[in-house]
Amino acid sequence: MSVMPKISLIDMDDLPEYELGDIRLENHFFVAWHFSRWLNSEMHLCATYEVQGIARALFDLAHMQSPTGTLPDDDVQLSRLLRLDIMRWRELRAMEFGPLRGWFRVRCGDRIRLAHRVVIEVLSDAMQRRDERERVAGEKAVAMRLKRLRDGLRGLGLNDRALADNVLIERMDEWLLEHVSGQRRVPAYERVLAFAKQQGWFGRPSNY
């Protein structure tokens, strides 16, 4: 006996907007898997192992979709993503504890997609971790750039008093960012040093 899909009309205005927006994460290859939460979930306790395996595959597949974290609301596409016969997929989807349990429709621009609260939560955590890594990496990059600037200026004879002036060094770094492209070499340090002296950034000549 074949299982026919349920057909219903959906008003997109009644659907929530996907809260993560048009997100596309680059180099997104790892997500946290809270096994204790999964082992105590209704899906694990009530669904067949076949359904559980497919449900887990859908969680992973959603991270490779666009927007990240969503699935197509289409049986043909879902069955192909899962490499399942379309009729078998529809049988599984019709179960009370089917593989799409917990997924809900959302608006993604002019499309209707499927989202899941747990996937959104995991993605939000991944985004926060990414932002923190970028912040730390940015701070390290700035620190290394300022160190190279100090080393370069020291090589040109700038005294320790001037090199210890954070405001001065950061001001010179900003000038270099604006006026020098590519790798900074001795001529770049000579230019910024001459400009700083010309503009009176050091105050009295004895300060440098």
Rank of each mutant, 00 (worst) to 15 (best):
M1E: 13
M1K: 00
M1C: 03
S2T: 08
V3R: 13
P5G: 03
I7M: 12
S8M: 12
I10Y: 09
D11M: 11
M12R: 15
D13Y: 09
D14T: 12
Y18L: 08
G21N: 02
D22K: 02
I23D: 00
R24Y: 00
N27F: 10
N27C: 09
F29L: 05
F29Q: 13
F30W: 12
V31R: 11
A32C: 00
W33I: 10
W33G: 00
H34N: 15
H34I: 02
S41P: 05
H44K: 04
L45K: 15
T48L: 00
T48N: 06
E50F: 11
G53T: 01
G53F: 13
A55I: 07
R56L: 15
R56F: 14
A57H: 13
L58E: 03
L58M: 09
F59Q: 12
H63V: 02
T68E: 00
T70W: 02
T70N: 07
L71M: 05
L78T: 05
L81D: 04
L82H: 07
L84P: 02
I86D: 05
I86F: 11
R88A: 14
R90G: 02
L92Y: 14
E96T: 14
E96M: 14
P99W: 05
P99D: 07
L100Y: 07
G102V: 11
G102N: 04
C108W: 09
C108K: 08
C108T: 09
G109D: 02
G109Y: 11
R111I: 03
I112E: 04
I112L: 03
H116Q: 13
V118K: 02
E121G: 05
D125W: 11
A126P: 10
R130N: 01
R130W: 04
D131Q: 14
E132V: 01
R133Y: 01
E134I: 05
A137Y: 01
K140L: 00
A143T: 11
M144D: 15
K147D: 11
R148N: 13
G152F: 06
G152T: 14
L153E: 06
G155R: 10
G155E: 06
A162D: 02
A162R: 03
L163H: 09
L163E: 12
L163R: 09
A164I: 04
D165L: 05
N166D: 15
E170T: 13
M172A: 00
M172Y: 07
M172T: 04
E174N: 08
W175K: 07
L176Y: 08
V180L: 03
Q183A: 14
R185G: 00
P187L: 06
Y189D: 04
L193K: 12
A194D: 09
F195S: 08
K197Q: 13
K197P: 00
K197V: 10
Q199M: 08
G200E: 02
P205H: 13
P205T: 05
P205A: 06
S206K: 12
